[in-house]
Design a protein around this nucleic acid. Structure first.
Length: 299
DNA sequence: GTTGAGCGTT
């Protein structure tokens, strides 16, 4: 029987780690890999030749040279270039973990003064958190600002904070919103926006905002004009919106009913979302044959 | 040389 542990290091000059051997004196590759993920073998420097030698590996079992592990330090082998790849994989997954729910998007900045530059934007928004992108949209010919731009933050918390307030930039009030291109018509809107039914005409947007603030950050209030007895309230947090759905709340002495906001009808697909058989069926009825392929049918 | 609700030349 050999020793209980052999000394293994990632590199000849690194501090060795003791890896347990089996009763028969062998060492399992899995034991090595448990401490050095991705390891595929061991090597060591032969004291006599001063050359590196490979350790015999048979079906996952490492065999001691000359039947004796001795006091040598064994160095971990990795698959060709695998070490770097593993680091890349780790880095990539770390990025994904960091993103996860926290992925930020470009925000559109509306209402910019004509004079505001990208540097001005960066200076202003940097007071909220790390800015990773700013843009001021300009006329291609004249170079004049179109009065809006975009900003992107490193952290989602910063984004949420920025969305939920107005911004005084170079003397004008500006709004930061998720761009329409980023707003999925289905889930996100449905989850963050509520439908407030049975509204009365004397309810103002500001009053609704004041009222719903008690539940969470309100990012938008919309009351159709002319009066239609309902309103939409959007929260920063979808969980707040979801928690309110189904409730009957009393605002200014009247009972309003809260439910999910149906997706806004931005395009033809949303407009005919609830049409029996879908839009293709509608096309069939209109034209007598199905010549329309909905984009959603080849996602 | 203008303007003030909106939505990004690639």
């Amino acid at each position: 029987m050999s020793e209980l542990y052999i000394r293994v290091a990632e590199d000849e000059n690194e501090e060795p780690m003791e890896i347990p051997s089996e009763d028969d004196g062998t060492v399992l590759l899995s034991s090595v890999a448990a401490q050095f993920p991705g390891a595929c073998g061991l090597r060591y420097r032969n004291p006599e030749s001063q050359c590196m030698r490979g350790v015999r590996l048979v079906e996952g079992v490492l065999h001691a040279p000359e039947n004796e592990w001795g006091n040598l330090v064994y160095v971990v082998n990795y698959p060709k270039d695998n070490k770097r790849k593993m680091e890349e994989i780790d880095a990539a997954s770390a990025v994904k973990v960091k993103r996860g729910f926290q992925k930020t998007s470009d925000l559109i900045v509306l209402g910019l003064p004509w004079k505001t530059s990208e540097q001005d934007l960066k200076d202003y928004f940097s007071t909220f958190g790390e800015v990773i992108m700013v843009q001021v949209k300009r006329d291609a010919k004249t170079g004049n600002s179109k009065g809006f731009g975009f900003v992107r933050f490193a952290d989602y918390e910063t984004q949420t904070k920025v969305i939920t307030q107005r911004h005084m930039i170079d003397g004008r009030w500006c709004d930061c919103k998720l761009p329409n291109s980023k707003v999925c018509p289905d889930e996100p809107m449905r989850s963050r926006k509520i439908f407030v039914g049975r509204c009365t005409e004397d309810m103002t947007p500001d009053e609704l905002r004041q009222y719903f603030m008690q539940y969470g950050e309100v990012t938008d209030v919309f009351i159709p004009k002319p009066f239609r007895a309902f309103a939409f309230v959007t929260f920063a947090d979808d969980q707040v919106a979801q928690a309110l759905c189904g409730e009957d709340l009393i605002i200014k002495g009247v009972s309003v009913h809260i439910s999910n906001a149906e997706p806004k009808h931005n395009n033809i697909h949303q407009l005919f979302r609830n049409f029996p058989g879908g839009i293709a069926s509608l096309a069939t009825q209109m034209f007598g044959r199905s010549q329309y392929q909905s984009p959603s049918s080849h996602v």
